[in-house]
Design a protein around this nucleic acid. Sequence first.
DNA 1: ATGCAAAAATGCAATCCGTGCGATTTTCCG
DNA 2: CGGAAAATCGCACGGATTGCATTTTTGCAT
Lengths: 203, 203
Amino acid sequence: MAEQGWRERKKTLTRRALIEAGLRLFRDQGYQETSIAQVAAAAGVAPRTFFGYFAGKEDLVFADTPARIETALRVVDERGPEDTVADVLTRVAEETIAGNPGDVDLLGLASGRMDLVMSTPSLQGAALHRLWTTEQRLAGALLRAFPDDLDEVSAAMVVGSFAGAFMGAAGASLRRGDRPDEVRAAVGRAVRHAARGIRAGVG
Amino acid sequence: MAEQGWRERKKTLTRRALIEAGLRLFRDQGYQETSIAQVAAAAGVAPRTFFGYFAGKEDLVFADTPARIETALRVVDERGPEDTVADVLTRVAEETIAGNPGDVDLLGLASGRMDLVMSTPSLQGAALHRLWTTEQRLAGALLRAFPDDLDEVSAAMVVGSFAGAFMGAAGASLRRGDRPDEVRAAVGRAVRHAARGIRAGVG
DNA sequence: ATGCAAAAATGCAATCCGTGCGATTTTCCG
DNA sequence: CGGAAAATCGCACGGATTGCATTTTTGCAT
């Protein structure tokens, strides 16, 4: 847990500086309109250095998702004996919502990422791709947690219908201009719908 | 319906040449590894001309989807009086499958696109983004077709769960290396599952 | 404190996508 | 045949990435 020293500390410091500078610039002047050179300059490093921290422009925007994904997977892995597939996925969804609609507070930059992604096509694609690969991992974890109730395809199908309902509702609610709590409610309804659908099919 | 003359004819001809050349090169040497310059050269036009036909490299890969999307939307618009939401979406899915898993035959280049997309991250993102925007349009059409049973959010949620289940099943089946007919079967099962889930919730 | 080796930050060149613009060539039509 | 409109081209940028060689920093053992 303990960091080595100045070396490590400085690295996470630079990383954070890049994220904050990037997110701020993206929000203020737009994603496409902001060049990596600007982000690097604002963070006080050379443009080339940016790529030592992130694989690309998109990566900076989703810098906090890996942790959230691990959390979601852990929820599945820690399935209780009495839990059903729907129970577990519902809990995953709740866990996800807890730090999603209307928030972000990534590094002090509360909100903004949702709007940013929703208003930037290329980021939408990136976000959906991450969601897609995450769904696959989630399906794998689910299959491991319920080996008697599922198979590869049904696991992926269940996760897909869940995520699909979730995203569909969230997207529509946001597009409609709902308040954060309304979005939460909409998503909650979608999750319950998906859970009901699953119970009607798989154990 | 009738084309003007040589002008129009040549245009669609060049367009087709670009698509065929592109798809062939993408399949043979990979998407990322193929430059637009190569595609243009193979089609006998200047690189700059490529952008007169497609907005970008990705567009070429999905050149046939617009038509398919229109078809899907039409299926929703032509809802029968007795149809339920699940009925309509099931029909949309069938319509979609009819020309999807294992095929493509876009322009004689049977198969290959599915594999191409599944093996190219950036194309996956593009494909998912197209799916996402299509879902929105589908939700809109569905809302128009069932104004008494749905609202914006529930329509999007229903479409999302449907598409999610569809994609999840298709992806898992393909990833597992299933034969085209097996993929079809898996998707069929997913569609029935999603339909059941919808019937359990919305009318 | 000093010097060396590993790690990080840079600089630079090169490739490729995508776009604006002006110059050319084709095709259409009177 | 003589434009006018449409389609191609060529050219020059701006910006994302990447590979490679060079220069700074930092960690650590004398």
